[in-house]
Design a protein around this nucleic acid. Structure first.
Lengths: 344, 344
DNA sequence: CTGAAAGCGCTAACAC
DNA sequence: GTGTTAGCGCTTTCAG
């Protein structure tokens, strides 16, 4: 017959349990477990042995309350499903890895209301910093960010005024550059295919910039096609078919993201359309997926990983700037012409 | 000249600040903010007004410590990059949405050591439950799960013994079923293409089951090809080329996931190979991406969303079972023959 | 309906 | 090196 454990197995263990089991004061146990201060090797051994054999897991809630320190970084992004944010996340977690900080992710689904509530929820855990996508927030969200008293990094976009720091690219300029490249390659009848998402400000800014680039050459969009939801690759096929049926004389299709662009490319190839001769194509993002396509779609790299890295560095205080806030890091996406824009 | 704010703007607000600003006791403020107990409308108004105008955000750390209640659910998964887990996540968050519970995600990169440390880290925040991918864990992780004293749901796989509850499919059987379907369609020279990941136990079990299915018909794998890292779509192309060069008489390729399968399909189509006549193809997962391909890859739906939903229901206590633990929910993936297996 | 007192489990700050 | 004391900001419990 085995003896019943000394502590109720349902109750989670506390420092006191470890303290009693090891005959060392709670304070010293705490020191050992956090590798703080000087503790003799013999005491350390006793404590570690007791903690391990009991299966003690420290209570960070209590620790955080007492120390006013939380090793969490709130990361608030619109979506996880489109390949772009997972890469930002990689950059963030790799950078945070050896700082003791931990990213905690919240998803907004491009909804300002969700963003507001996710932000509120995360701030209530008093994180060490916030990394949040975009510069556009509801007034309440903006107020929360301003008064949070912790480093805030708004990522992806720098066309606007950040609350604190910002890391990203100019989507407006990216759109303009793509327009210029397309025009330089001799295309004139240009169509746009994108998402119908009023709250995707970055896609909107790219389109604005694109239109601006066209306008400078005296051009306007010859046709437009929008979608929402569903498999992006499939939507790309369908939209491409639709826009080409409606406006057969288009000589270029600019897609708001690579996934629908890839769908369009597959459609065009299947139709035997001469790409990039008769019809040029371009997307946006530089997603890895494109590498596996039969032909390389023209695109612009959105510097996703770099954005994550820089944002995390700001939060971790790794960047040289002594002062809190105010840092804006602009990254410059490279145009990757691929095989779907005519060489000039 | 504006008057300085009463409280130090750097310090975060506390209940006391709201209490003083509204002339209501901390306790009643707390009641109002949590919608607990009866509070008169007039008091409620005063409190809400004060809280809002100050921009008070409650401190959940203190709240959790005092109430011994945390509205967090730890979700521990191997990866976010392959489309399968994001869908599980959707199922989880949709289900948790109206329960007041919040998922917090940890990524292990298929590393048992990472899993152990992520689990430790998450348990130290005393979540209300744990949803964790797979049934295989290090001894230490297993011990932590067993003694956590909260509901644990192991997801994706049911070929094994769960610590507490489990929701998933039998990957072994899924592999066997695919083998049977392939054999029934008349294919005999079968190759396998997959990832070289010793810690992807589900992929291994599928392959085991697949081999078993072949063995029952007196067959063995005619060739195998493995990869790790990189763009799955591209790897699919490359591996397919490699295996067909090496063993040209293969009449079927079984891929361990849809993404490399899609790459293989694109390769075969580009080569003008007769699919499914000369060569049949199949993947695994049922990813949405496949809808956009020129031809539909045969696959099996892994019930990702359903798994997330059921797991979350168990944690939220929404399932009928009164007793804690012990529930195992098996889901049954449907074989989707698509256009890449000969009709019999 | 409202308030006062007593902790939740840990750590900062200080003694020894 | 190690122990003691006093909270962290909230909620539980119990009085009014």
């Amino acid at each position: 017959m085995t003896k019943a454990p000394v502590v109720d197995p349902r109750r989670t263990l506390t420092l006191r349990d470890v303290s009693e089991a090891s005959g060392v004061s709670e304070m010293t146990v705490s020191r050992v477990l956090r590798n703080r201060g000087d503790v003799s090797d013999s005491t350390r051994e006793k404590v570690l042995h007791a903690a391990r054999s009991l299966g003690y897991v420290p209570n960070k809630i209590a620790g955080a309350l007492a120390s006013q320190r939380v090793n969490l970084v709130a990361v608030i992004i619109p979506s996880m499903s489109n390949m772009v944010f997972p890469e930002v996340m990689m950059g963030i977690s790799d950078t945070l890895e050896d700082t003791g900080l931990q990213p905690v992710v919240g998803i907004t689904n491009y909804s300002p209301e969700r963003e507001e509530s996710v932000l509120y929820e995360m701030l209530s855990w008093r994180p060490s910093g916030v990394i949040i996508a975009g510069l556009e927030h509801s007034p309440a969200a903006h107020a929360m960010l301003e008064s949070a008293g912790i480093p805030i990094v708004e990522i992806m976009d720098i066309d606007g005024t950040p609350v604190d720091s910002a890391v990203g690219i100019s989507h407006r300029r990216a759109g303009r550059q793509m327009a210029e490249a397309i025009i330089a390659a001799g295309y004139r009848r240009i169509g746009f295919l994108g998402t119908k998402m009023p709250d995707d400000h970055r896609a909107r800014k790219r389109l604005d910039g694109f239109r601006e680039g066209l306008a400078r050459a005296g051009l306007t969009l010859a046709d437009e096609e929008y979608y929402r939801g569903g498999s992006a690759l499939l939507k790309g096929r369908e939209m491409t078919e639709a826009i080409l049926k409606r406006t057969p004389d288009l000589d270029f299709l600019y897609y708001s993201n690579d996934m629908i662009g890839a769908g369009g490319l597959l459609y065009c190839l299947a139709q035997g359309i001469d790409v990039p001769g008769t019809l040029g194509l371009a997307g946006f993002n530089g997603v890895e997926l494109l590498d596996g396509l039969p032909r390389k779609l023209a695109t612009m790299d959105a510097c996703r990983r770099e954005i994550g890295i820089h944002a995390a560095e700001i939060i971790a205080g790794k960047r040289p700037t002594g002062v809190i806030g105010g840092e804006v890091i602009e990254l410059f996406p490279k145009l990757q012409p691929g095989d779907t824009i005519r060489k000039v």
